[in-house]
Nucleic acid binder design. Structure first.
Lengths: 380, 380
DNA sequence: CCATCTTCCTTCGAAATCGAAGATAAAGCG
DNA sequence: CGCTTTATCTTCGATTTCGAAGGAAGATGG
């Protein structure tokens, strides 16, 4: 649709713009330190970026014992990113500026079971709405990105073998969106986006496991500060066999998968078997907060099972932190059961400085993650 | 001792030298493609490196449809690396040139239970022997590195909480060696070195899990082509709880660790309980090859248990290959049992292009890994 | 054998980067 | 207030890198 214009950045300018946009630097001196370029080169490039209108100076910052830095910011007029996080029945959609700050975020009901074309067309028109209502005049759209509740092939931007997305298998989402928008397009698994978004809230934590506990169980992995995709399916923990007394078949054809016991969907099933009706994973959290013992017991058991799976992964990956997000993450017993299992069974060496915490990035973390990855695509 | 001289490389020269040394490029044109530098800059720097005597031209290579490249090699006179791989009762020691080619490799008996000072002094004198006997005159030693059968803190080069190294806990190995040699010193876990060494034999495979199945069970992880250390303890899989009927206590204080069932030491224990005496894990392999049914059954069971642990990690990391090394890796039933378990239980998406194979790097792979990491230290 | 293509490598002017020195601006302190 | 210290940013000549053009050396194919 709008704005085919490429971002007018050349050479080192892109790196500098990225560092400012991601918040890694906000003055010339900091840019020089972080980028490794000489201070003089930084000054030159920054001057150019200011002339092009991509960067703006916004007054002096706070001194740290010497002359005050002149703070830099990405210009709000540099461009917009349209990002979405598709869920089974709801989608969060938003517009971000190039530094990832949301202009507007909305949650809308949708239904991915209608198939990819209908859903993506719906998404595009929702973006149009947002741009019309909240997009400042003359600010071009620079990129479009969305999270998908299923595996995404990183090369082709196709959905591959999703378990709860009928009609989407092998659909080329990136290509379809690319036909709509002549812009960089990002398609990524939702847990991965969450992980990237969370990573921004955990500076200094270079190795993260970010759990998304909602209807399903997903996990995004940050290794050395960057998203780890493997061959595209990395981060799956939902089909690990767990230790239980009973035996339940999972939709994947194997017995006793974690997902069959600890996912939001599984908890809702179990509650319904006990005559307690719920419509969404958040309802389960509400029951726990209301002190309904059956719900609490189920959630605690789910946490224990998840924690036992995490023990293996913590010993192996030795991360700096485990971050729990998703709609179930606000359930206290879930986190404490995970903590208990991990700290009890993992090697002391691996848990020595391990933090296990709930999400810091807030409800829009996945959208911020999309913005972060999209910025890379825009500046490449 | 000898050779305090720093390698006389400045700026881009180091990158180019590294690319030639690691075999990533062997002509000026290839260097330009791989390094991203302009062909003209490459020519300039290569000329300098040849003038300094670090690189040598060695005749024309084979044409690929045009003018033949002038092949480049790191000069054998550029320097030597002294590397070792310490085991519980044996050590492999060798001298490499800067491109990682072994001049000489020896295996000697030793005993790490004598404590760090005695063992490291022994190692230093073994290096002196090798240098005297096989070190070309005038070629300076550029770095010293060793593998350790236990966890190593990457920052300090200390051994931390090793399970089978009495007297070594918290010993500053890197510092102690650094006092002997005024040179870059590398201290790293043995499975990690194996992984780095194997990675050189798997070009195009950027994500690897390298299993070391010997007396213990170790695992080195290569993510995105680089060794993943986490906080220093990454790659541990030996203290994962496995599914068994019986219940055995592990030395770590937890029940049913993988190590207690599937390590070489555990297999030897089990065989001795059946009245079959073995002295080393390799003896177990020999029994399997001789068709001793008890040994075969035990090894197959070990493979199944290891495989079941790997299923979790394969789904999570989604690697390109699992490489099995260590003295047990030559036992056919081990590999096939691992394969069976992984392919049976993992997600199809994760096993689609997954290769499970035995070591390609040969018996000196760990030494080559040490050389590879040491080269980075020397060229930094 | 000769023209043409491909690949490899070098030459040389233009552009980017560096680094040392200095200018600017604030904090800390007597 | 003036002096020193610290940090930020700019100026300018030296160095490095780039990239387009061309030369060198072999493959290919009539």
């Amino acid at each position: 649709m709008s704005g085919k214009e490429r971002l007018p950045v050349r050479g080192a300018q892109g790196d500098l713009l990225r560092l400012v946009a991601t918040g890694h630097a906000e003055s010339r001196a900091q840019l020089a330190r972080v980028s490794g370029l000489a201070a003089s080169s930084v000054s030159l490039r920054v001057e150019e970026l200011i002339d092009t209108g991509l960067l703006v100076e916004e007054g002096p910052g706070t001194s740290s014992g010497g002359r005050r830095p002149r703070k830099l910011r990405v210009s709000p007029a540099a461009g917009l990113l349209a990002v979405a996080d598709l869920g089974a029945h709801h989608a969060r959609l938003g517009l971000l500026d190039l530094s990832g700050v949301p202009l507007v975020v909305e949650e809308r009901a949708c239904d991915i079971a209608l198939g990819p074309e209908a859903t993506l067309d719906w998404m595009a028109s929702a973006f149009d709405d947002l741009l019309l209502a909240h997009g400042p005049a003359g600010v071009p759209l620079r990129g479009v990105g969305t999270g998908i509740p299923g595996p995404v092939d990183p090369g082709s931007g196709r959905v591959v073998s999703p378990s709860r997305m009928p009609g989407w298998n092998n659909f080329p989402v990136a290509e379809y969106l690319g036909a709509h928008y002549d812009l960089p397009v990002l398609v990524e698994n939702d847990a991965n986006l969450l992980a990237v978004g969370e990573a921004r809230s955990w500076p200094g934590f270079d190795n993260l496991m970010v759990l998304k506990a909602g209807s399903g169980i997903g996990c995004g992995v940050i290794v050395d500060g960057r998203l780890h995709r493997g061959r595209g399916a990395a981060g799956d923990i939902s089909h690990v066999r767990v230790r239980t007394d009973s035996s339940t078949m999972c939709s994947c054809g194997h017995p006793d998968c974690l997902e069959a016991y600890a996912s939001g969907a599984a908890l809702m099933d179990a509650l319904s078997g006990l005559g307690i009706a719920t419509r969404r994973p958040a309802d389960v959290v509400a029951l726990v907060e209301d002190g309904v013992p059956e719900a609490t017991a189920l959630v605690r058991n789910a946490g224990r099972l998840i924690g036992e799976v995490l023990t293996v992964l913590v010993n192996f990956l030795n991360p700096d932190a485990i971050v729990v997000g998703g709609s179930l993450s606000t359930a206290e017993p879930l986190i404490s059961a995970i903590r208990a299992a991990v700290y009890e069974r993992c090697l002391p060496l691996a848990t020595r400085d391990l933090e296990i915490a709930v999400t810091r990035g807030g409800p829009d973390a996945a959208l911020l993650g999309a913005g972060s990855l999209l910025l890379d695509a825009v500046l490449s």
